[in-house]
Amino acid sequence: MARVRAAYHDPDGTRYGIPTYWWRGAPPGYATRRQLRAAGLRPGGQPIAAQILWRGVGGTRAAYLYRVDLARPKRTATPAQLRAVRAALTARRTCPTCRQVRPYCIPRSLGECIDCHEGGTA
Rank of each mutant, 00 (worst) to 15 (best):
G45T: 06
P103T: 09
G29C: 10
G25R: 08
A26I: 01
C116N: 05
G13Q: 03
R33T: 03
W54C: 09
A122Q: 05
A84M: 06
Y8P: 09
D69E: 15
L110I: 07
V57I: 14
P79I: 03
Y66Q: 05
A63F: 10
R24Y: 07
R5N: 14
A26D: 00
D115K: 03
G17R: 07
A38I: 09
W23S: 10
R24T: 00
Y16M: 10
V4C: 12
R24F: 02
T32P: 00
L36N: 05
A87W: 09
Q46L: 11
L65W: 00
G13S: 02
A50S: 04
T60S: 02
W23M: 12
R61I: 08
T78L: 06
A38H: 11
W22A: 01
T78F: 02
P73Y: 08
A49Q: 00
S109E: 13
P96A: 05
Q35K: 08
A7I: 03
H9V: 03
G119A: 06
L89C: 11
L36Y: 06
W54Y: 14
T97L: 11
P73D: 02
A62T: 14
L89A: 11
Y66M: 00
W54T: 01
R102E: 11
A7N: 10
L110S: 12
V101W: 02
T32C: 13
I18T: 01
A87D: 14
T121H: 11
P43D: 10
A31C: 06
R93P: 07
P27Q: 10
Q35C: 03
Y66R: 01
A63N: 00
A62Q: 13
R67V: 01
Y66P: 07
R83T: 11
T76H: 02
W22F: 15
A39C: 00
Q51P: 00
R92W: 04
A38S: 06
P107E: 14
V101E: 14
G58N: 13
A122M: 13
L53W: 07
R92I: 00
R108T: 03
I52A: 05
P11N: 08
Q35W: 03
G120H: 15
D12Y: 07
I114E: 01
R15Q: 11
P47S: 05
G59D: 15
A39Q: 15
K74L: 15
T32R: 10
H117M: 01
E112V: 06
W54Q: 08
D12A: 13
L110M: 13
D69R: 07
V85N: 00
A91H: 12
Q81A: 12
P27G: 04
R93E: 05
P96F: 14
Q46F: 10
Q81N: 11
W23F: 15
R93T: 05
R108W: 07
L70E: 06
G13L: 05
T76G: 09
T94D: 09
G13K: 04
I48R: 13
G17D: 08
A88D: 02
V68M: 06
A38C: 04
R5A: 15
V57H: 10
E118W: 01
P19R: 04
A84D: 01
A31F: 08
A38L: 05
Y16A: 04
I106D: 06
R75Q: 09
P107C: 12
Y21F: 15
M1H: 13
V68Q: 00
A71W: 01
G17M: 10
P27N: 02
I48M: 11
I114P: 03
R67T: 02
L53Q: 14
Y16D: 12
P73G: 04
E112P: 05
H117A: 12
A39E: 08
D115I: 07
R3S: 15
T32K: 10
